[in-house]
Amino acid sequence: MTKTAIVLFNLGGPDRPDSVRPFLFNLFNDPAIIGLPNPLRYLVAKLISGRRAPVAAEIYQHLGGGSPLLPNTVAQADALTDALSDLGEVKSFIAMRYWHPMTEETVRAVLDYAPDQVVLLPLYPQFSTTTTASSLKKWREEATKVGLSAPTHIVGCYPRADGYIRSVAQLTKAAMAQITAGKPRILFSAHGLPKKVVEKGDPYQWQVEQSAARVVAAMDVPDLDWVVCYQSRVGPLEWIGPSTDQEIRRAGQDGVPLVVCPIAFVSEHSETLVEIELEYRHLAEESGVPAFIRVPTPGDDPLFIESLAKSVRDVLARPAGIWSDEGNKLCPAQFGRCMCQAG
């Protein structure tokens, strides 16, 4: 019987108050996040994590002192294992980039499992050099160290995957149904990136826009008012826009209710449960927005899990390597940082 290891990549999050600062250090010490050479990057990461830790700790206090991301990801991994029972012996693992279980721990666990094949499945529907590429780079480094050499199939991105799109569309329509104060505007809010990252060929923004457009089409609501925007800006660099807070203020000026869909997040964590649910809701109230509804993330919704399972099956039918879920390179030529192979 074939043994298949499925590895779910995610960002990770602090699990208790005293892990907030080391989590932030790991984040900012990643060269995909701060592109400075060491030891300068190390020193900058120490400085930023020290300054941001108290603010971040307050954010996580709203979540009971730690991030819910790991238990949410465990639920997704368990559901995915069940959905892939037809493949033979399947075991799902979780590799977090910046907090436990971290990549090096997971690589050793997969090595001990001794699979015949490995599937790497980022829980980032849209590819970015700052997320998927960083996780892949770390995985390859750690796998090389321990001699993990099983054939490895990689789902590079799935921004237009049918089950993912239908799951988000259904959740968004359900949120819209809660609005009684007039016709709402949908904000498809994604985590932002510095503009220079996109200008260097990162396809993330293009893929986010593809996802949002597909969700709108799947919702099939006449004359839907919607916009893609970006949240979580940090630092002095110019970021891609429009920003979510700008769009919330504009909605207040226009007097329209808001439904905020976290289009690039598939698990609940601080950006959805605190930044959107608490901080943006407060901004909406201050700005005169007549109603504000947050759309939940797909989580372990059966539509989304079956979509992930299909991506796994499809990528296993192709040669080892990195593929989009559609089996070809999705991104236009100007996005040279896209890593997916051509079909």
Results as ranks from 00 to 15, higher is better:
residue 4 T to G: 02
residue 8 L to V: 09
residue 14 P to C: 02
residue 36 L to S: 06
residue 40 L to E: 07
residue 51 R to G: 14
residue 57 A to V: 03
residue 72 N to M: 02
residue 74 V to Q: 14
residue 75 A to H: 14
residue 80 L to Y: 07
residue 83 A to H: 07
residue 83 A to T: 09
residue 92 S to T: 13
residue 94 I to T: 08
residue 95 A to S: 08
residue 95 A to V: 04
residue 103 T to R: 05
residue 105 E to Q: 15
residue 108 R to E: 15
residue 110 V to D: 04
residue 112 D to M: 06
residue 113 Y to P: 04
residue 114 A to G: 00
residue 114 A to D: 15
residue 121 L to V: 07
residue 124 Y to S: 04
residue 125 P to N: 00
residue 125 P to R: 01
residue 126 Q to T: 12
residue 141 E to Q: 05
residue 146 V to R: 10
residue 155 V to W: 06
residue 164 Y to V: 03
residue 168 V to N: 10
residue 168 V to Y: 09
residue 181 A to M: 00
residue 190 A to Q: 08
residue 192 G to H: 09
residue 195 K to H: 14
residue 198 V to G: 05
residue 198 V to L: 11
residue 201 G to H: 02
residue 205 Q to E: 15
residue 206 W to E: 11
residue 206 W to I: 00
residue 207 Q to Y: 01
residue 213 A to G: 12
residue 220 D to P: 08
residue 228 V to S: 08
residue 232 S to N: 10
residue 233 R to T: 14
residue 234 V to R: 11
residue 240 I to W: 10
residue 242 P to I: 12
residue 243 S to P: 07
residue 243 S to G: 15
residue 244 T to M: 06
residue 246 Q to F: 05
residue 247 E to C: 15
residue 249 R to Y: 07
residue 253 Q to E: 15
residue 253 Q to P: 04
residue 260 V to L: 12
residue 262 P to M: 00
residue 263 I to W: 01
residue 264 A to V: 05
residue 265 F to M: 02
residue 273 L to C: 03
residue 273 L to F: 07
residue 277 E to G: 10
residue 278 L to D: 12
residue 280 Y to P: 09
residue 288 G to I: 11
residue 289 V to F: 07
residue 294 R to V: 11
residue 301 D to Y: 01
residue 301 D to T: 02
residue 306 E to C: 13
residue 306 E to W: 10
residue 307 S to H: 13
residue 312 V to W: 00
residue 316 L to A: 14
residue 318 R to C: 03
residue 323 W to I: 00
residue 333 A to G: 00
residue 333 A to E: 07
residue 335 F to W: 12
residue 339 M to T: 13
residue 341 Q to S: 00
